[in-house]
Simulated scan of single mutants.
Amino acid sequence: MYYFLCHLSLMDLCYTSAVVPRLIRDLAAARKNISYNNCMTQLFTAHLLAGVEICILVSMAFDRYVAIVKPLHYVAIMSRQRCNMLVVLAWAVGFWHSVALLLMVLSLPFCGPNQIDHYLCDVKPLLKLVCKDIHVVSILVTANSGMVVVVIFLVLVVSYILILCNLRTRSSAGRRKALSTCSSHIMVVALFFVPCIYTHVLRAGAENRDKGISVFYTVIAPMLNPLICTLRNMEMNVAMRKVWSQVAHSDLKQIK
């Protein structure tokens, strides 16, 4: 669990670093412009890191499923080699996803004012600047991003339904411990996937509030993930209490 939490925290840090600095710069600057190369770089980086983060959330769900449903086989199933394989697979899927979107966008002809109504160089706002019919391209974007997100979200929902069904046969103490561990992951998944599904499932030409909704999975969710995972984890709470008690004890000694 902590192995995947470490990678999730790293992805949150990298993902927000690809979005937030540019957002802060645009809020402070009079001219909110970005070059074509920088825009394509941000597009590739944001989708790469988001794809990796989604796959890590799936790996975390699989890890919780094995720990709760098959606890006696946990060490054998979730070996370090398999955990490393899941992380490598996450990077491979994220890279494939971002490269496919980037190659599709690079092949499109852009015209017009070259102004996007968004704080992020994402595919949907860029498609509004294309000089040809985007019906087919919009379907491909929805299939690449929207449907993949929906399928992964359904897989996560099914995994937690199976976990909850398995918990009916456990003791009350075991249910509380399992639910305490899973509840943080469920909140993280909901914060990231619900706005992400809303943004990427609608077609590119549809009128929606995707710019405001995108703030949830680009800024708010990565910011809250470490806090949620820390406060909802019993071991982390115990460790934090020990640290604070040691700090308070040392402060009292200094005062005396």
Rank of each mutant, 00 (worst) to 15 (best):
L57V: 02
F95G: 08
L86W: 09
I56G: 00
H47M: 04
L43F: 12
L72N: 13
A50Y: 06
L48N: 02
L48I: 06
N38T: 13
V75P: 00
V52L: 04
Q42A: 12
H47S: 06
L89K: 09
V58W: 12
Q42K: 13
L43M: 07
L86Q: 12
S98N: 07
V93N: 07
L43C: 08
V66S: 04
K70R: 11
L72C: 08
A67M: 06
W91C: 12
A90D: 03
Y74A: 08
M40D: 04
L89E: 13
A76S: 15
I68W: 00
I77L: 08
V93H: 07
P71A: 07
Q42G: 15
V69I: 13
T41L: 11
A67H: 05
V52H: 02
L48C: 06
V87A: 06
N38P: 03
F95E: 05
L49Y: 03
S98W: 03
F44H: 11
E53A: 15
T45F: 04
R64G: 04
L43P: 02
V58Q: 11
R64V: 04
E53G: 13
A50K: 03
H97N: 13
A90S: 14
V58N: 07
A61G: 14
A100T: 15
V66M: 06
A100R: 14
W91I: 05
F44Q: 08
V69D: 03
V75D: 15
A92P: 03
L43W: 03
Y65F: 10
S98G: 05
F44L: 10
S59F: 04
Y74V: 00
V88T: 09
A76V: 11
N38I: 08
E53V: 02
G94A: 02
T41F: 11
A67L: 09
F62H: 12
H73E: 15
W96F: 10
H47K: 09
S59G: 12
T45N: 08
S98H: 05
V75M: 10
T45P: 00
L48E: 02
C83H: 06
Q81V: 10
G94V: 02
M40N: 09
A100D: 14
V52M: 05
F44R: 10
D63T: 04
L89R: 11
D63N: 10
V93W: 06
S59T: 07
I68G: 02
V88L: 14
H73W: 04
A61D: 02
V58P: 01
H97C: 09
K70M: 08
K70P: 00
L89G: 13
C83G: 11
L72A: 12
A90Q: 04
V52I: 15
M40P: 04
A100V: 14
Y65C: 05
N84G: 08
N37I: 05
V99M: 10
Y65K: 10
C55S: 15
I77Y: 07
M40S: 02
R80Y: 10
H97K: 13
R64M: 11
A100P: 01
C39W: 06
Q42V: 12
E53P: 00
H73K: 13
N38H: 15
V87I: 15
K70Y: 11
F95D: 01
W96A: 10
Y65N: 05
